Simulated scan of single mutants.
Amino acid sequence: MSVTGHRQQEPLLMSRCDVTGAVTDSDFDTLLAQPNRVSSPIRRLRCELRAGHPGRHAAFVLAAAHGDRWWWMRWNTAGGEVADIPVCAVSDEDNDDCLLPQHHEGEHSFQLSAGDH
């Protein structure tokens, strides 16, 4: 007997954090000085990790070196920093890459809802 009319359910996606931050003028100048930028640095940010995540917030700010170097802002209530961090090396079964920084806390980007990011 075959069953028809049943579709496999899509996995439930977790919500993203809604905490915002901003790159300081000094850090923005550091980012502008990076060679072979893919675009201009992002100044106003929203955390890209899972809502309720532990630890610091994180958001992508710049790709440089023709896209080979990814810069991120990590922050908490005590302050923040921009850092050159490789992208996470995990992919899902559909070969969707995680677009969060290496060693991030919590779920991978493909497990999170797009929201209004």
Rank of each mutant, 00 (worst) to 15 (best):
C17D: 03
G21S: 07
Q8W: 08
E93T: 13
Q8L: 15
A33T: 05
V90Q: 13
D97W: 06
T77Q: 15
R46Q: 08
Q111D: 11
C98A: 01
F110E: 06
I85E: 14
L99S: 10
V3R: 12
R16S: 04
L49I: 00
Q111L: 07
L13H: 05
R69P: 05
L112I: 01
H103C: 10
T24H: 04
L100C: 03
C17L: 03
D68Y: 09
G80K: 05
A59S: 06
A64T: 01
N36E: 08
S91E: 15
L31N: 02
H103R: 12
F28T: 04
H117S: 11
G115A: 10
W71M: 10
V82N: 00
A33D: 04
A114Y: 13
Q111C: 05
W72P: 04
S113G: 09
W71V: 00
G5P: 09
E107S: 08
G106K: 01
S39P: 09
E105A: 13
S91Y: 06
C88M: 00
G115E: 07
A89D: 15
P35Y: 02
S40H: 02
S109Y: 01
G106W: 02
F28S: 00
P41F: 01
D94M: 14
S26E: 08
S26L: 10
V19D: 14
H6C: 13
W70A: 07
D68E: 04
V61L: 05
S91A: 12
N95T: 13
F60S: 02
A51S: 13
T24K: 14
W70V: 11
D18Q: 15
H53V: 05
L62T: 03
H117R: 13
H66N: 14
C47L: 01
M73V: 02
V82L: 00
L49W: 02
Q8E: 15
A63Q: 09
P54R: 07
R56L: 09
S2V: 15
T77P: 15
W71N: 03
R56Y: 04
M1R: 11
S39H: 05
H103Q: 11
E107W: 02
C98E: 08
G52Q: 13
T24M: 07
H108I: 05
W75T: 02
G52N: 09
P86C: 08
G67W: 06
W70E: 13
W70Q: 02
V61F: 01
L45Y: 05
E10W: 11
N95V: 12
T30L: 11
V38Q: 03
